[in-house]
Every structure is written in structure tokens, then in C-alpha cells.
Design a protein around this nucleic acid. Structure first.
Lengths: 197, 197, 197, 197
DNA sequence: TATGAATGAGATTTCATTCAT
DNA sequence: CATGAATGAAATCTCATTCAT
């Protein structure tokens, strides 16, 4: 049974998240990750091909879970407007609850190494696609007025990302949740969503 | 006569910009930068204390020039609405004309090394402050309706940043300039700016 | 079972002794020491913090052993005169049997680096103290006539050190042992020790 | 006229003495010496072949002056006993007045680099020879009883050297001069010199 | 599977020396 | 003669990865 296998795999991923978030990819030595995970250095190479592979696996997995959560939340909604609010809430709350992931995303999202950049862009594009679909629907059924879907997505994602970025960097941050309503309010204005439900 | 001195300093900074943009800070070896700049490895240490110092000098200098340009453009404007448009245009055009700086900003903006992060945050905060002042003025004189200045700034900067990010990553990008009007249009909606000038 | 660990530690120390003796501290590159010890360069840093640490460990360990031997020999003796002879014999014989240590002591004893000098002065002072105690006893019980204990120690140590120094530098040296009796004879004169018993 | 040439040559030598005494040979960079001497780095190479050459020239010159002084002092004396006292006094006083030279001698006398060691041993051997001649004479005319001239020289030089060494290392040293009489007293005992002049 | 000691390639940085001015 | 900017070889140290146990 591969339960222990799975356990150690997760332990390493958790340790890497923490380390990458705090020190960045290049300053997180394998030995540091191994110690945090409570395994030997060599053990890591039983679960991952190399250091890069940890980063890629990490991002794919964690971002994957995030997207699944977003999708689940969205599905519960009736209108595009509701979905927009859901995306905002889920994004900010998820990041708030996973500060390490948030930091790590902020810090390592835009990795320089082309191979890593490539691997990372997959899950991110998926998220972008999900956002764009919601916007497209909103436009189609007349809820939103939006001259360009992609620009709309850039605005929505960019705003949320900037909020998380500020929150991650500042030491005593205003809770991310508190920004939900204001963010939603502004987005409604940008997308010309009428006040009534 | 320090003309040659200044020349070499700039050559190294240019080389570093290029290298950091393409490979990232950690994968840009001093020898690589030196070769790009057409100087010997040791020469770099006549102009910079160490590798970190290059990054910090680079960001401070280039970002400084950017902010000066933004400020100059803003001053020409009469209304806050015009200033908003100016910021959008200047930001996107400057980044388009300095792709390396844009890439580098995207990539290294969120550095893990605390010392670098600290040094980098200065010029950035200055830019944020500049944006927030424009927004505050707009609210004061009734041009904008905005529940929260900081959130407004996050939206404006976040949107522009996401646009640059997309542009930098995609290989055959739509010109950044083409996004100006749409971005301005959406921001006007978000900030409840009336259509008439 | 840390037998191999201890073995490698000693191998590196032996290699360093040899290298330092022949080439001096600054001209003994880590790679040279590693090759002599039969390990990889990096291995050295598993056992020592840095190059300085090798020098300090080396001196502390080897000088410590020497002092222990001197103390053991001294304890066997009844009179201060006998102890004086024992110190002379042990000093010269130990250095003769550990030519590398002798060279190294001669060469690196007076290091320029303050941190090293500090670390090295400890064991040396211990040896000086041991000599001075013997002299003090001899004076107290009337065996020696000595106007100044410290000067007495300087004379004894200086003489032995000069002998070792000559022996180390000259290529075809007279055996150090052969000097024992003459040295003792002269010291007896200097310290006004009577010929009998 | 080569007055200015000579001046700069001496300035560099003085600077080197100071630097070597304080930091040791390897930690005294050419640029440091140049700055101390008030000349440009390159200028040093107009006067010396390389860094080693400075050390060798330095030692040869300064030690040469010392030996000349010793010889002059000795010549004034009538008896070997007087000459012995003269050597002791001149040695200790000269070192006291040239603390940098003393430090430098203590620190760099026993250099590891074979080429340097070779060059340094010349002047030193000359001094040894001078001492040994005094001792030989003393023995010949019955003033001294000494079983071995070389051992006698080792004792005399070793004692003086140990005194200087202690003086150089200790921060608040007893004046070297104060040791003259005690040292002479002990040497008289060692060499069986009768009390009467 | 798991370990962690050992490896050695590779990176940053220093500094003696040169040479155009 | 004098300068000091530039050079680039070389040294220390780090750390991802391997492999015998």
C-alpha cells in the first residue's frame, strides 16, 4: 500500500512550499527542504527527479487544487455576477489561508528558468481560461458590458494579484477578506454591471 | 574626464538588464554579464560592490527614470481623468519600449532575498504613492467615486502589471499600446468617471 | 559507528599538517590538502568550517598532545632539575619525531591573522605556564637561582625554539637529540644549578 | 639626480614594513601598500620586480642596517664579555625602536615560501656568524666556557628572540630594555663567565 | 525504500600585474 | 617617471546529486 509513499510525498511538498515562500527557490537548499520534511536528502530524489521537479510538481498540485475549488464554487452560482463575486472571494480567501502558497506564487510565479516558466504557465492558463469563460458568459447573457474579454480577465486577475502582493509584502496587513466587497464593487463598475441583483 | 567611466557603468547595467531579463538573477553569472558588457569579470567589481549591488542599482536607476517620466507626463494634465489616462499610456508605452526592463520587473520584482526586496520596494512605493495621489485628487474634486484609494491603486497597477506580464510571456504579443483605450475605458467604469471629458 | 568519520578527520588534519609545513598556510590550497588527504574538496567542509578552522583545529590538537606528553613526563620526576631536563628532552624529541609539526609551528606560530593568532596563543600560553611552574618550584626549594621567572622561561623556550628552528631549516641537520645534554648543561649554568645529584 | 627616486623607494619600503607588521605578507595588498606610501599601484612596479621582491628587499635592507649597527657597537668593546653585553643591548634596543621591524621579523621571519625563506636566511646567517665569532673569541681567550659554539649562539639568539616575541605580542609590554641586565646575568651563568669584569 | 556522507562542478570574488595615457 | 583602470587567473566555498550501505 502506498499510503506512506503518499505521506512523504506530501511532506516534501509542504516543506518545499514553506521554504520557497520564505527563501525563494534558489535559496532553498535541498538539505533545508529535507530537514523541514523530516527526511534524508537522498529520499527527496526517490520522489522527485530533481529540484526543478519539486517546484513544478508543487505549483501544478497546489494550483490544481485551487482551480478545483474555484470551479466548485462557481458551479453553485446562477448568474455571472454571482460567479464574479465567487471568484473574488475564493481567490482572496484561499490565498489568505495558504499564505505560503500566496508568497510562493508571488515570488516564484514569474520564474526565470524557461523550463520552469513553461511548466508553471499550464495551470495558470487554466485559471485564466476559467475566468475568461465566466466573463464571456456574462457578456453573452447581457450581464456585463465588456469591450475585450482578455482585458477584463487581466483587470480581474491583476487586481486580485496586486492585493495579494501587497498583503504578502506588508507585515501587518489588513485582512484580505476585507477587500472583497470593495474589489467586487469596482469590478461591477468596470464591467458595467447594474446594481440590482 | 569620466566619460569612459560612465560608459562602462552603463554598459554593465545594460548587460545586466538583458541577462536578468532572459535568465533571471540567479542564472545570470557575473561572467555572462561581463561578456555581454564586453569587459573582464573583475572590472564589474570596480563599479559594483557585488552581484546584489548590480540588481539594486539597476532597479533604482531604471525605475527612477520611469517614475520621472510618469511625473513629467502627469504634470501636463489638467484633470484627474486625464492624469489617469496619462499613467496608463506612459506605463504601457515605457514597458513596451524597454522590454528587458519589463521582463526584469516582472521576474525580479518579487525577489526572495530580503535585502534586495527592501531596496527594490523603495522606488516601487514611490510609484504607488504617485498613483494614489492622482486618485485622491480625483475623488476630492468629484471626478472619481472610489470607496478606497488603496484598492483603486491596486486595481490600476494590477491591471497594467497583468497586461505587461501577458505581453512579456507571450511570444507574439498584441502591442501593449492597443490595450490603452480599453484599459482606460474599464478604469473609468470602475472609478465611476462620467463619459464627457 | 563513527570510525570512518574519525579516520577522515585525521586524514585531513595530517594532510594539512604536511601542506602547511611545506608550503605555509596561504600557499596550501584546499584542493592541495584534499588531494593529499585523498578526499574531494567539498568533503573538507563536512569536517571543518573553513580553511582557518583547519589551522586552528590542527594547532590545538597537536599542541594539546604535546603538552599532555610534557606534563606526563614531568610528573615522573622528583626534583625541579630533573623536570628541567625532562622538558628539554621531551621538547626536542617530540619535535624531531613530528618534523611537520615542528616546521608548522616554526612557520605558522606567528600568524598575522589576528583570529588565528588568538586561537593559537591559548595552547602556547599553557606550555609557557607549565615551564614557569617548574622554574618557580625550583626557585622555591632552592634548586635554582633565578632573578626572574619569565626571563627564565624565555631563555629555556627561546633556546629550544632556536634549536628546532635551525634543525628545521638546515637540510642535513645534526640530530636534535644530540643537543639535549649541551642545552641542559648551559641551562644549569644559567640557572645556577649545582653539578651534584 | 636620483634623490626623488631614493625617496619613493624608501617610502614604499616603510609602507610595506608597516603593512606586513600589522597584516602579514599575504594580507597586505599592493594597493594597501601603495596607498600607505602615497604612490599609485603601478609605481611600485617601477621600484620592485614583484610583491615578493618587496619583502626580500625589505628584510635585506633593514636587517643589514641592524647588523651594521651591531658590528659597530661590538668594535668599541675590549673583552668578549663586553661584546656579549653589547649584542644583548643593541638587539633589544634596536627592536624596541623599530617595533614594526620587530613585528615583521617575528611574523614573517619564518616564511613558508621557499624562495623568500632562502632570501631571508642570508642576512640572518650573517648575524648568526657575527654572534658565533664573539663566542669563539671568548672561548679562545678563556673568558667563556662553552662546550658548543652553535648551541651557545642558539641560546643567545633564542633568548633574545623569545623576549622580542613576547614583547611584540603582549599589548602592555614591559620595556625590552629592562630585560637587558637579567638576560646578561643568565647568559653569564650559562657561559660560566666569572663575575669580575 | 531510506539514508546521509561524499562528490566535484561551478559560482563569486580578490588581487598581483600590466599598459595606455 | 607616474598613474590607476582594466585584466583574468586562481582561490574559497556551496550545494545538487549520487550511491554504498
Amino acid at each position: 500500500m502506498s499510503r506512506p509513499r503518499e505521506e512523504k510525498y506530501q511532506a516534501i511538498l509542504d516543506a518545499a512550499t514553506e521554504a520557497f515562500a520564505e527563501y525563494g527557490f534558489f535559496n532553498s537548499q535541498i538539505s533545508k527542504i529535507a530537514k523541514l520534511a523530516g527526511v534524508a536528502d537522498g529520499t527527496i530524489y526517490l520522489y522527485f527527479k530533481n529540484k526543478e521537479d519539486i517546484l513544478i510538481s508543487l505549483f501544478t498540485e497546489r494550483m490544481g487544487k485551487f482551480i478545483i475549488e474555484v470551479l466548485q464554487e462557481i458551479e453553485k452560482c446562477q448568474t455571472a455576477k454571482e460567479r464574479l463575486l465567487r471568484i473574488i472571494k475564493t481567490h482572496l480567501r484561499y490565498m489568505q489561508e495558504n499564505r505560503s502558497l500566496a508568497m510562493f506564487t508571488q515570488i516564484e510565479l514569474r520564474q526565470s528558468n524557461p523550463k520552469i516558466r513553461e511548466a508553471i504557465s499550464g495551470p495558470l492558463r487554466e485559471y485564466f481560461h476559467c475566468i475568461e469563460q465566466v466573463l464571456t458568459e456574462g457578456v453573452k447573457n447581457g450581464e456585463f458590458a465588456l469591450p475585450d474579454i482578455v482585458v477584463g480577465r487581466q483587470m480581474l486577475f491583476g487586481t486580485l494579484d496586486a492585493m495579494v502582493s501587497d498583503w504578502v509584502i506588508s507585515k501587518k496587513p489588513r485582512a484580505l477578506e476585507d477587500l472583497e466587497d470593495t474589489a467586487f464593487d469596482l469590478m461591477c463598475g468596470a464591467f458595467r454591471i447594474r446594481d440590482g441583483n
